[in-house]
C-alpha cells in the first residue's frame, strides 16, 4: 500500500487524536466522578495499561512494515513512542503525586525497597533519554548510528515494563494479563532476533 504525503499527514493526525482519547477519558471521568471507589488505583492502573499498549504498538511498527510492506508505517513510530513516554509519565506522576504527595524520601523508600517499583522506575528513567532525543535535530546531532544504538534501549525497557506488571500482579496471584503482555512483547522482540539470525545466515552463505 502506497500513501501520499498528504494522506500520511492525515493518518498521523487521526492517530494523534486517537492516542489522546484514553487521556481525555481519564480527565472526563475525573470531572464526572466516575473513577470508582478508588480513583488513585483506577488512574494508576489505567495509565500503566496504556503505557504497555503503546509500547506493544510501537514495537509492532518495524515487524508490520516488513510483513505488510507498508513502508510509510514506520513514520508513525516516533509519535507512538512519545505516547509511550506520555502515558508512562502520567503513570509515574500518579505515583509521585496522588500516592506520595511529593514526599520524595517516602517515594525513594518505595523505589528502593520494592522490586516491582524498582523495575518500573528504571524502565521510566530509561525512557527519558529516548523521549529527549526524538527530534530530527537530535538525530543529526548524535549521528544516525549512535542515535540508533541509544534507541535500542527499548529492548531493555520493554521486558522491564512487563516484569514490573508481572511482579505487581504476582502479589495477588493474578498472572493472566501479565502473561499475555509477556507473550506479545517477546514475540515482537523474538521476530527481530529471528530476522537478524536469518540475515546473518544468508550473508554468510553469500560470502562462500
Amino acid at each position: 500500500m502506497n500513501v501520499t504525503n498528504q494522506q500520511l499527514a492525515r493518518i498521523k493526525w487521526i492517530l494523534f487524536a486517537l492516542a489522546l482519547l484514553p487521556f481525555l477519558r481519564l480527565v472526563a471521568y475525573t470531572y464526572l466522578d466516575k473513577l470508582g471507589a478508588n480513583p488513585v488505583e483506577f488512574i494508576t492502573r489505567n495509565t500503566g495499561d496504556w503505557t504497555l499498549y503503546f509500547l506493544c504498538i510501537t514495537l509492532a511498527m518495524t515487524p508490520l512494515r516488513k510483513l505488510l510492506q507498508w513502508h510509510w508505517i514506520i513514520r508513525m513510530r516516533r509519535m507512538l513512542g512519545l505516547y509511550v513516554f506520555f502515558y508512562a509519565f502520567l503513570h509515574f506522576m500518579t505515583f509521585l503525586w496522588f500516592d506520595h504527595f511529593f514526599e520524595f524520601e517516602e517515594m525513594w523508600t518505595d523505589v528502593l525497597k520494592r522490586p516491582f517499583i524498582t523495575v518500573g522506575f528504571s524502565a521510566f528513567v530509561l525512557l527519558i533519554p529516548l523521549a529527549l532525543t526524538s527530534s530530527n535535530g537530535m538525530i543529526k546531532r548524535l549521528g544516525g548510528k549512535r542515535w540508533q544504538l541509544l534507541h535500542r534501549l527499548v529492548y531493555v525497557i520493554a521486558p522491564l515494563a512487563v516484569l514490573h506488571y508481572f511482579w505487581m500482579k504476582a502479589g495477588k496471584h493474578d498472572f493472566a494479563q501479565p502473561l499475555l503482555f509477556a507473550v506479545i512483547v517477546f514475540s515482537l522482540l523474538g521476530i527481530r532476533v529471528f530476522w537478524r539470525w536469518r540475515a546473518h545466515l544468508t550473508h554468510n552463505a553469500k560470502a562462500f
Binding site: 475525573t30 471507589a37 478508588n38 480513583p39 488513585v40 488512574i43 496522588f98 500516592d99 504527595f101 523508600t109 518505595d110 525497597k113 520494592r114 516491582f116 511482579w167 505487581m168 504476582a170 502479589g171
Partner: peptide
C-alpha cells in the same frame, strides 16, 4: 510489618481520601 510489595503504614479510606488527600 510491611507487605513485601507495599507499605502497610498508611491506607486510603474509600470514598473519603480522594485524589488530592493524603493517605
Amino acid at each position: 510489618v510491611n507487605h513485601p510489595r507495599w507499605s502497610q503504614a498508611s491506607e486510603r479510606r474509600i470514598g473519603e481520601d480522594g485524589l488530592l488527600s493524603r493517605k
